[in-house]
């Protein structure tokens, strides 16, 4: 096993934030579902099931958009801040193993965060109104998005010496991507009701999954949209990891 990955997981789960963040996320999600449950009262359970699925989709995306870049952002900048980075870089461990260990640990933490909401999301199946394929698609999309944003945070982390700066820039970058791609989409006439406009800017938008989920369109065109969305996110993730590798090979402090 990669020693950096082993060390990262050990450290992450020993730090207070390692278990506090999933706990707080689960508490917020549970409280919101409970409020929906109470407010629905006598109404039909189908509507409750689809509402829970939608609510999980929204809260999960917000949590992923904020916490995934943060997890990556602390991985290298945090080591610099604590004075552990140079001993690690000057040790005989290969630079690609450092990059791979940090990236895998960040990705696994994001997946842990996602898995916390599984029992709550499963309630939507219990009440009906959401099917397994839709929920599976939701988790797959958010997993790809979370890992991508964690890698983006890791790339930002190689540049800055302060965790807070890296955190602000990476979360800001993730949110900036939403605004920037939506602005290009709008400039190309994308928000007008007539069709025929290019949708490619939105493939890079982290909220694109909402358009697909809540658009209610599950035809072949929508499936191609999913595919392009995954490819676009994947390209950001791969590009970020390549950037991390390049920075570590070059070196430095």
């Amino acid at each position: 096993m990669n020693p950096v990955l082993f060390k990262e997981l050990r450290s992450m789960l020993r730090e207070r934030r390692g278990f506090l963040v999933p706990m707080i996320y689960a508490a917020v999600l549970s409280a919101t579902v409970y409020l929906f449950f109470v407010s629905f009262g006598e109404r039909e359970s189908d509507a409750l099931g689809s509402t829970i699925a939608g609510e999980v989709a929204i809260l999960q995306l917000i949590a992923i958009a904020i916490f995934s870049p943060l997890v990556g952002a602390g991985a290298i900048a945090g080591e610099r801040e604590r004075g552990t980075w140079l001993p690690l870089l000057s040790s005989p461990v290969a630079r690609w193993r450092i990059a791979a260990g940090k990236a895998t640990a960040s990705a696994l933490y994001v997946l842990l965060l996602l898995s916390v909401s599984v029992p709550i999301a499963a309630l939507s199946l219990l009440f009906g109104g959401a099917d397994l394929a839709v929920l599976g698609g939701l988790y797959l999309t958010h997993a790809i998005l979370g890992v991508t944003l964690a890698l983006f945070g890791l790339a930002v982390s190689t540049i800055f010496h302060r965790t807070w700066t890296a955190a602000l820039v990476s979360v800001g970058g993730a949110l900036g991507l939403v605004v920037f791609t939506a602005a290009i989409y709008a400039a190309l006439g994308g928000f007008h009701s007539e069709g025929g406009h290019p949708t490619w800017p939105m493939y890079f938008n982290i909220c694109y999954s909402w358009m697909l989920f809540f658009g209610g369109d599950h035809d072949a065109g929508s499936r191609i949209g999913w595919l392009w969305h995954f490819l676009a996110l994947g390209s950001i993730g791969v590009g970020s990891f390549a950037f991390v590798l390049r920075r570590l090979r070059r070196t430095c402090d």
Binding site: R14, R82, T84
Partner: peptide, 13 residues
């Protein structure tokens, strides 16, 4: 073996 200035071991280990 390189020991940088103000090097710190991993505090959580």
């Amino acid at each position: 073996g390189f020991l940088p200035e103000r090097a710190t071991p991993y505090l959580e280990l």
